[in-house]
Every structure is written in structure tokens, then in C-alpha cells.
Amino acid sequence: MSRIPFYLKERLEEVQRRVLYESYDAQKLPVWERIVLTWILLFSFWIVITANTSLDNLIIGAIATLIIASFMRDMLMEDVRHRGHLIEKIVYFLLLYAPQYLIIMAFRLIESNIKVAKNVILMDINPGIIKIKTDLHSDTGVTILANSITLTPGTLTLDVSKRLGETYLYVHWIDVETLNREKAGEKIKGDIEEWLKKIFW
């Protein structure tokens, strides 16, 4: 170790620290946090669907959704990053992450509608199937990324392949601009992946 120059040594330590952080973030949440997050989701769904705020209805809903959440805790909240306190996560999600994502996706959706209308009128299509790499590894994160890619202009996700610890997406692109994997990934994913990496691992 003594023959390694000091700048390389610093860089090695930084890489080791990042690996440590990533493996800490990729842990599962504690059981009670998973139950509480699923319970909040299901209970808000119950209130909206029944459209009734009398007290007995709320009590019945709370008990029923708590039972369901205690069974189904691993289904939705398994892949959330293990970082910060529970209340911190909820507040950050509601005030910062969700409006950011909604604004990004609304403008992308309008742009993609206009682009499809232009393609229908002019028929200037040049399709191809491209393979890109993502940094997300969990099932929920890859699913939301694939849905977002499908709604962004000109792209449609075909399949996902996971091998050797890396995740690849096959994307049908209606107007192929580049075949380089990094440039294509940057053009297709945009800033959605950066956003998703804050929540899912």
C-alpha cells in the first residue's frame, strides 16, 4: 500500500466509502416503517374511494387497512432507500420530490403528444431498438423508470434484462439519433433517473 501515490489512495478511500453508503442505503426498511408507509397509502385510498368522513367509517377503514398493511408490507415499500427518519422521508416526498416529478412529467407528456401528432402528419419515422444501461436495481424503481420512459417523447420500453448485477433496458425509439449507449441513455432518461435515485435504490 505504501507504493500507491497519495492521490490514488484518497480516491480508493472515497470509492470504498461510497460502496459502504450504497450498501447501507440498499438495506430494507425496518418492519414498522414499512407497515406505516403502506398503511398511510392504503388509508388515503380508502378515504378517497368511500368519500365519507363520518367517524365510524374512518375507524372501520383504519382497522381494515392496518390488517392489510401488516400482511402486504413487503409488496410496495421494499425498495425504498434506507436513509433518514420516517417523518423526514414523508415530508421530503410530499413537499419536494412529488411536485418536481409531476411538473417534469407534465411537460414531457405534452411535448410527446405534440411530437406524435407531428409524426402522424409528416410520417418522418426512422425506428430502431436501442439498449441502454440504468443505475437503478430494484424492481419498483425500474418499473417507474420504464413507465416514465414510455411517456416521454418518442420512446417505448420493450424489455428489461438483469445480468451480472447490471440492469439494461431495451427501448424502441421512433426516431433514432445515435447508437452510442451513453449518449442514447442520456437523451432518453434525462433527469428522471436522478430523481428516482433519491427514493429507490
Binding site: 417505448l156 420493450l158 433514432v176
Partner: peptide
């Protein structure tokens, strides 16, 4: 979008060749 991925993958496995310039799949 979820149903659309499923149909796209099913159509590829069903044997429909896409009219594309490059097919990495």
C-alpha cells in the same frame, strides 16, 4: 404504459418482426 410494455413484449415473442434500422434486442 404497463399494459403497453406487456403487449410490446408479447408481440415480439409472438413473432412479429419490427421494421427497424437497428434491432439490439
Amino acid at each position: 404504459p404497463m399494459v403497453s410494455h406487456a403487449i410490446a413484449k408479447g408481440a415480439y415473442k409472438y413473432g412479429i418482426k419490427p421494421k427497424v434500422v437497428v434491432d439490439m434486442y
